[in-house]
Amino acid sequence: MEMKRNARVGMTTQELDHMGGLFLKSRGAVSAPKKMLNFPGNTCISINREVAHGIPSDRKIQKGDLINVDVCAEMNGYIADSGHSFQMPPYDLSVTRLCQYTHDTMMKVINSLKHGVKLNEIGRIIQIEAEKGGYKVVKNLCSHGVGRSIHESPEILPFYNKHDKRILKEGLVISINKR
């Protein structure tokens, strides 16, 4: 949310990324992708049709842009992974609806999670909700486990796979992608 509050039309994604890096540092954390994978930014910032993992650059944020900020931080050997999509004014109602719809879908998924649930049910909810809203899922953008490394198992597909028999177990920490 700190990066959303500081995003301004005309600033570069690199400037916004720098703010994100300073915020992490002020909390005693570091960018996990930068530390572990030598990623060229502190965060991933994607604009408009870029789905995910955008590299901060001299690209300027424009009016009406849809921005996705993905922050993956490491602190004391543990990883946290979070993202947020938002639009710069002036607002396009279809983009506002997309952001709200994906957030609501993510909350439906989170509220369904408990010990014993099949992991493919996560994909089923995402796929059904996307179709109900008139959207499509990005099939190669998976949810995943987090803990001591950036992407841990299990990899969780954003669509239903009847052959996936894995079950959610107590204590497992996962990241749910909503874009």
Results as ranks from 00 to 15, higher is better:
Lys118Asn: 10
Val69Ala: 04
Met107Gly: 07
Ser46Cys: 03
Ile45Ala: 04
Leu141Tyr: 07
Gly123Ser: 06
Cys72Glu: 10
Leu93Gln: 15
Gln127Thr: 03
Lys132Ile: 09
Arg148Phe: 13
Ile122Lys: 04
Met107Asp: 08
Ile67Tyr: 00
Thr13Asn: 02
Asn111Asp: 13
Glu129Ile: 01
Gly171Leu: 03
Asn68Glu: 12
Asn48Val: 02
Glu152Pro: 06
Gln127Met: 10
Glu50Ser: 08
Pro33Phe: 00
Gly54His: 00
His18Pro: 05
Thr105Leu: 07
Arg179Asp: 12
Ile156Met: 05
Asn120Arg: 12
Pro56Leu: 03
Tyr135Glu: 12
Asn76Pro: 05
Pro89Lys: 10
Pro56Cys: 04
Leu172Lys: 09
His115Gln: 12
Asn161Trp: 11
Pro154Trp: 01
Asp104Ser: 11
Gly20His: 01
Ser57Asp: 04
Arg27Tyr: 08
Asn42Ile: 02
Ile156His: 02
Asn68Gln: 13
Asn177Tyr: 09
Ser94His: 11
Gly171Val: 04
Glu121Asp: 11
Arg8Val: 06
Cys72Pro: 05
Arg166Thr: 07
Leu113Ile: 12
Gln100Ser: 13
Ile61Glu: 02
Ala7Phe: 01
Ile55Leu: 03
Asn177Ile: 11
Leu93Arg: 14
Tyr135Val: 10
Asn68Lys: 14
Lys139Glu: 13
His84Cys: 14
Ser57Ala: 07
Ile110Cys: 07
Pro40Arg: 00
Asn140Cys: 09
Asp81Phe: 09
Cys44Phe: 14
Lys25Met: 10
His103Phe: 14
Asn42Met: 05
Val71Tyr: 04
Ile61Cys: 01
Cys99Asp: 10
